[in-house]
Amino acid sequence: MSSQLWKVRKARPEDIAGMLALNYAIYPEDWHVSPEYVERVMQRNPEVYNVLPAAGGIKGIFSIFPLTRDHFDQVLNGQLAEERLAECILPYDQPKHVCLYLISLIVDIHDPLRKQYARAVIEAIPQELHRLAQQGIVIDEIGAIAISADGNRILRRIGFSTSEAMESFDQEFNVFRAAPDEIIRAIQPK
């Protein structure tokens, strides 16, 4: 089955319940956020959440938060709590330099079509990077924190390199960084 059967789109307020249901089913409780948090993020920048709707609800999500370099580095170094990120997110209201924090990359791993959903979500990432560039958004760097072995594997596969580790919730997690062209090159069909 082709990943073209499903289309990733921008999340809408009515998607929040489905997004959080998927988030809660996949991520450990320490990493859960509230509906109010998602609403605050959407108010700051309605373009950061990308969802894959399919039969049965939201089957995939990727979320990329535009931040200043200082806030970006603070998040990846564990100095800025993710709960405070909503107030740090930059709008895409005018051309500017940003660093993108890939805060989530989730697929419904319990669904038999999970591999097809994963492909659709991952293939949408370069499209989003191109869309932002067309808006005059200059992406200086992209970063992510892997909280699972699968996260580590997927981030490496899509062009990220491990840069350091950070501590959160009394655990150590790998931090990944990449330039936009590294992500695009790694994901684009050969």
Score class of each variant (00 low, 15 high):
residue 79 Q to N: 14
residue 148 S to D: 10
residue 140 D to N: 12
residue 157 R to F: 12
residue 66 P to F: 01
residue 132 L to V: 06
residue 110 H to R: 14
residue 86 A to R: 05
residue 49 Y to G: 01
residue 105 L to E: 00
residue 149 A to M: 13
residue 29 E to Q: 14
residue 179 A to W: 05
residue 141 E to S: 09
residue 125 I to D: 01
residue 70 D to K: 10
residue 113 L to G: 04
residue 98 V to C: 02
residue 185 R to N: 12
residue 116 Q to A: 11
residue 11 A to Y: 01
residue 122 I to S: 01
residue 87 E to A: 13
residue 173 F to R: 03
residue 119 R to L: 14
residue 151 G to A: 08
residue 125 I to V: 11
residue 138 V to T: 13
residue 189 P to A: 15
residue 55 A to W: 08
residue 154 I to P: 03
residue 82 E to M: 14
residue 91 P to Q: 07
residue 13 P to I: 05
residue 8 V to I: 07
residue 87 E to N: 10
residue 123 E to Q: 15
residue 51 V to N: 02
residue 50 N to L: 09
residue 156 R to I: 07
residue 53 P to S: 07
residue 109 I to P: 04
residue 64 I to N: 01
residue 92 Y to I: 07
residue 77 N to S: 15
residue 178 A to G: 07
residue 47 E to T: 11
residue 6 W to Q: 02
residue 5 L to T: 10
residue 118 A to H: 02
residue 27 Y to P: 00
residue 43 Q to E: 15
residue 179 A to P: 03
residue 134 Q to M: 12
residue 18 G to R: 03
residue 116 Q to V: 12
residue 122 I to G: 01
residue 131 R to Q: 14
residue 40 R to Y: 11
residue 18 G to C: 05
residue 103 I to P: 00
residue 8 V to H: 01
residue 17 A to L: 10
residue 138 V to I: 14
residue 128 E to F: 09
residue 178 A to Y: 00
residue 190 K to I: 15
residue 29 E to A: 13
residue 145 I to W: 00
residue 50 N to H: 15
residue 41 V to M: 08
residue 1 M to L: 12
residue 81 A to E: 15
residue 22 L to K: 02
residue 60 G to V: 02
residue 64 I to S: 06
residue 146 A to M: 07
residue 154 I to G: 04
residue 87 E to Y: 09
residue 67 L to G: 00
residue 42 M to C: 06
residue 6 W to H: 08
residue 158 I to Y: 02
residue 30 D to W: 10
residue 95 P to V: 09
residue 28 P to Q: 12
residue 53 P to R: 04
residue 185 R to E: 13
residue 55 A to C: 10
residue 133 A to K: 13
residue 80 L to M: 09
residue 108 D to Q: 07
residue 25 A to G: 06
residue 10 K to H: 15
residue 124 A to N: 07
residue 103 I to N: 08
residue 97 H to R: 14
residue 146 A to D: 04
residue 117 Y to P: 02
residue 2 S to Q: 11
residue 43 Q to K: 15
residue 73 D to Q: 12
residue 48 V to M: 04
residue 111 D to G: 06
residue 170 D to F: 13
residue 60 G to L: 03
residue 20 L to Y: 06
residue 68 T to P: 04
residue 125 I to P: 00
residue 118 A to G: 11
residue 120 A to I: 05
residue 3 S to H: 13
residue 177 R to V: 09
residue 95 P to F: 07
residue 120 A to N: 02
residue 83 E to Y: 12
residue 12 R to I: 09
residue 25 A to E: 08
residue 11 A to F: 03
residue 78 G to H: 04
residue 42 M to H: 05
residue 39 E to I: 11
residue 167 E to W: 09
residue 5 L to E: 13
residue 21 A to Q: 14
residue 52 L to H: 01
residue 96 K to I: 08
residue 142 I to M: 10
residue 91 P to I: 06
residue 158 I to H: 02
residue 121 V to C: 07
residue 135 Q to G: 08
residue 78 G to P: 03
residue 182 E to G: 05
residue 177 R to H: 08
residue 140 D to K: 11
residue 103 I to R: 08
residue 11 A to W: 00
residue 151 G to Q: 05
residue 114 R to Y: 13
residue 122 I to E: 00
residue 159 G to E: 01
residue 133 A to H: 14
residue 62 F to Q: 00
residue 81 A to G: 14
residue 123 E to K: 14
residue 177 R to N: 06
residue 150 D to P: 06
residue 163 S to F: 08
residue 180 P to M: 03
residue 46 P to Q: 07
residue 136 G to K: 05
residue 69 R to H: 13
residue 159 G to K: 00
residue 110 H to K: 15
